[in-house]
Simulated assay, not measured.
Amino acid sequence: MSINFHGGDCQESPRTDSEFGICDEGNARKAYSDVNYPEKWMAKVENPSNLETTFTAIDYCIELKRPDGSMDNRCDGMLTYSDNIIFIELKDQQARWISHAVDQLETTIQYYIAHHDINKFKHKRAYAANRAHPKFQRSTLELSQKFFSKYRIRLIVQANIKIC
C-alpha cells in the first residue's frame, strides 16, 4: 500500500510569510503552522525571501504502520518548497530528547524513501527542535555526520529553521 506524504487533509495551503512557527499542542493532535501566536511556536521558521512553503503534518495525520499493523513512530511534520524538503520533530522536554527525536525522524524518512523519490529534492534537511532548548549547546557533529552518511540528509539540532 502506498503512503502519500504530499496531499490530503495533512497538507496545509502554501504560505509566503517571512516568519511563522510550527506548533504541536500534543493531546493526539496534528502539528500545524501559525503566524498569530508566537508563544505557541515550538520551532520558528525564517523565510526572508517569502518563498512559497508548504507544511504537511505527519504525526497524528499520516498513518505509518509496522508489518504487524501497529502504528510506527513518526516525526511531527515536513516543509517543502522549490527543491527543498525539511523533516521536523518537535520536542518540549529536558532530558534524552535528541535520540528520541532522531529516531522519529529516521523512521519517517525511511517510510518517505520507500514511497517517494526523495532525490527529486536537491536540498534535504531534518530538524530536531526543542522549545526547552532552542539553541542546543552540546556538539552533535558526530550524530549529524552519521545521519548524513546514512540518508544524505543534513541533521540540524535547533529550533530556528531557515528557508533559503
Results as ranks from 00 to 15, higher is better:
residue 33 S to G: 04
residue 33 S to R: 01
residue 33 S to K: 03
residue 34 D to N: 13
residue 34 D to P: 15
residue 34 D to C: 14
residue 35 V to I: 10
residue 36 N to K: 00
residue 37 Y to F: 03
residue 37 Y to S: 02
residue 41 W to M: 00
residue 43 A to L: 05
residue 44 K to V: 08
residue 45 V to I: 04
residue 46 E to Q: 03
residue 46 E to P: 01
residue 47 N to A: 03
residue 48 P to W: 07
residue 48 P to K: 08
residue 49 S to A: 02
residue 49 S to V: 02
residue 53 T to G: 00
residue 53 T to F: 01
residue 53 T to Q: 02
residue 54 T to V: 14
residue 55 F to E: 11
residue 56 T to G: 02
residue 57 A to H: 03
residue 58 I to V: 10
residue 59 D to I: 06
residue 60 Y to K: 13
residue 60 Y to Q: 09
residue 62 I to W: 10
residue 64 L to M: 01
residue 64 L to Q: 04
residue 64 L to C: 02
residue 68 D to G: 03
residue 68 D to H: 06
residue 71 M to V: 12
residue 71 M to W: 06
residue 72 D to W: 13
residue 73 N to R: 14
residue 77 G to M: 05
residue 79 L to M: 08
residue 81 Y to A: 09
residue 83 D to K: 05
residue 84 N to A: 02
residue 84 N to E: 01
residue 84 N to H: 06
residue 84 N to V: 04
residue 86 I to E: 04
residue 86 I to T: 02
residue 88 I to P: 11
residue 88 I to L: 03
residue 89 E to I: 01
residue 90 L to S: 08
residue 92 D to A: 15
residue 93 Q to L: 09
residue 95 A to T: 05
residue 96 R to Y: 03
residue 97 W to K: 06
residue 98 I to C: 06
residue 100 H to D: 06
residue 101 A to W: 05
residue 102 V to K: 11
residue 102 V to T: 08
residue 103 D to I: 15
residue 104 Q to V: 05
residue 106 E to Q: 07
residue 107 T to N: 13
residue 108 T to D: 07
residue 114 A to C: 05
residue 115 H to V: 02
residue 116 H to I: 11
residue 117 D to N: 11
residue 120 K to E: 15
residue 120 K to I: 10
residue 120 K to P: 05
residue 121 F to S: 14
residue 122 K to Y: 10
residue 124 K to H: 08
residue 124 K to C: 09
residue 126 A to S: 13
residue 126 A to Y: 06
residue 126 A to G: 09
residue 128 A to P: 15
residue 128 A to D: 11
residue 129 A to G: 10
residue 131 R to C: 14
residue 136 F to A: 13
residue 136 F to T: 15
residue 137 Q to C: 12
residue 139 S to W: 13
residue 141 L to V: 08
residue 145 Q to P: 03
residue 146 K to Q: 08
residue 146 K to Y: 01
residue 147 F to V: 09
residue 148 F to L: 04
residue 149 S to A: 13
residue 150 K to L: 12
residue 152 R to T: 08
residue 153 I to K: 13
residue 156 I to S: 07
residue 156 I to M: 11
residue 156 I to H: 12
residue 160 N to W: 09
residue 161 I to S: 12
